[in-house]
Amino acid sequence: MFRVGTHIQVGRLGYTHHGIYVGRNQVVHYSGFHEFGGKGSVSITTLSEFCDGQQAQEYPRARLLKGSAFLAEEIVCRAKSRLGEDSYNVFFNNCEHFANWCTHGDSYSAQTAGTVENNVRSGNYLQLGGLTLFDFISHFKGLFK
């Protein structure tokens, strides 16, 4: 079982899904896209539903985040404060962005950040030359809001 306020993740086909464990076997997460392309919202669900048959684990990249981790109570309050929000965007406001914002105030997704940002955060300064489409898009993300 996870500690209250833990950022957890579970593997899905081609990506990882993220949420905040808020206690009592419940997880707050951005549900993302549902069947037939409908947008989901920030919602609360059981750990079992969140995992969908997979094994959840604690988020391993917390060391890459800017800022200090909030206390568990604050993390849970931050997660619950966004319940019902329906501004999901796979590139700029996905479940990983949400969970990292809840824990550290850093709206960051390693899955969608470009190569340059990921290398800077991990201290891998030798690999900064390779740009990706995400690097280009994130440079102009203000145009997509």
Results as ranks from 00 to 15, higher is better:
45 T>C: 13
32 G>M: 03
51 C>Q: 11
64 L>F: 15
135 D>K: 08
109 S>V: 04
4 V>L: 05
37 G>N: 08
21 Y>E: 03
128 L>Y: 11
6 T>D: 13
38 G>F: 11
58 E>P: 13
71 L>D: 12
53 G>W: 12
116 V>R: 14
105 G>W: 02
131 L>P: 02
81 S>T: 03
12 R>E: 10
118 N>D: 09
84 G>R: 01
48 S>I: 09
13 L>K: 10
21 Y>T: 04
27 V>W: 01
13 L>Y: 09
51 C>A: 15
133 L>K: 12
12 R>L: 15
3 R>W: 06
39 K>Y: 05
114 G>P: 07
23 G>M: 04
71 L>C: 06
121 R>A: 09
80 K>Q: 15
3 R>D: 15
25 N>V: 01
120 V>G: 03
67 G>E: 10
39 K>L: 14
14 G>K: 05
7 H>S: 02
38 G>R: 11
4 V>D: 08
16 T>H: 14
117 E>R: 12
132 T>I: 10
86 D>C: 13
81 S>G: 13
117 E>V: 15
133 L>V: 14
102 C>L: 04
18 H>E: 07
118 N>I: 11
93 N>A: 04
78 R>V: 12
53 G>K: 10
135 D>Y: 10
116 V>I: 15
81 S>L: 02
78 R>K: 13
94 N>W: 00
5 G>R: 01
80 K>I: 07
136 F>C: 14
90 V>K: 01
75 I>D: 00
80 K>Y: 03
